[in-house]
């Protein structure tokens, strides 16, 4: 059963990723991108990490995909159609395949295959404990970044009033 789910999710992710790039209608591209990001969330659920999966959906589908759709709606269609890739497309595809092949070889030769999962999923409480004990510096930087963006948003919101 997990194998079947994995196959379905993998096919869905790759198909929608290709569709996101190749679709003529840019809105369909944005929708396929959202579906692709959701199938990534499906992978996280398969890995017994619902916490990460839910955040994947909240951040990528709820915020990133919405912002992309929003931008797409506000830009004229002709501007998107003008972008011609030409012969470089083949180079890109071959390059991508080569990189994927190289990564595959690397993974096959690594010791990843012999790692045995403990069976217990890591609870998000442990993630939280690790965050404030071992990785406190990263947490601090993240907090500063969030505070800066929040102050920026508030400033932007207040500019209207002064005009």
């Amino acid at each position: 059963m997990p194998e079947l789910a994995f196959t379905v999710l993998a096919v869905m992710a790759i198909a929608t990723a290709i569709l996101a790039l190749e679709s003529k209608e840019i809105v369909y591209g944005a929708i396929s991108l959202a579906i692709m990001l959701m199938s990534i969330a499906g992978f996280f659920i398969l890995l017994d990490a619902p916490f990460v999966a839910m955040f994947q959906i909240i951040v990528y589908v709820g915020a990133v995909a919405v912002i992309i759709l929003f931008t797409v709606m506000l830009v004229r269609r002709e501007k998107w159609l003008k972008a011609e890739v030409g012969g470089l497309q083949m180079v890109g595809i071959l390059g991508g395949l080569a990189v994927a092949f190289a990564f595959g070889l690397l993974l096959l030769q690594s010791t990843l295959g012999s790692v045995v999962a403990s069976g217990e999923a890591v609870s998000f409480f442990e993630i939280g404990v690790q965050m404030i004990s071992e990785y406190w510096a990263a947490l601090l930087v993240l907090a500063l970044l969030l505070a800066a963006s929040l102050i920026g948003a508030l400033t932007l919101a207040r500019i209207d009033k002064e005009e």
């Binding site: 809105v27 929708i31 959202a34 619902p50 916490f51 839910m54 955040f55 959906i57 909240i58 589908v61 709820g62 915020a63 995909a65 919405v66 759709l69 929003f70 709606m73 609870s123 998000f124």
Partner: peptide, 21 residues
């Protein structure tokens, strides 16, 4: 679920896409 609160917010996040589409 352990994370049902996050499920709620993940589902709420779909609403803007639906309305926009």
């Amino acid at each position: 679920s352990d994370v049902s609160m996050l499920v709620v917010f993940a589902v709420i996040g779909f609403a803007p896409i639906t309305v926009l589409l």
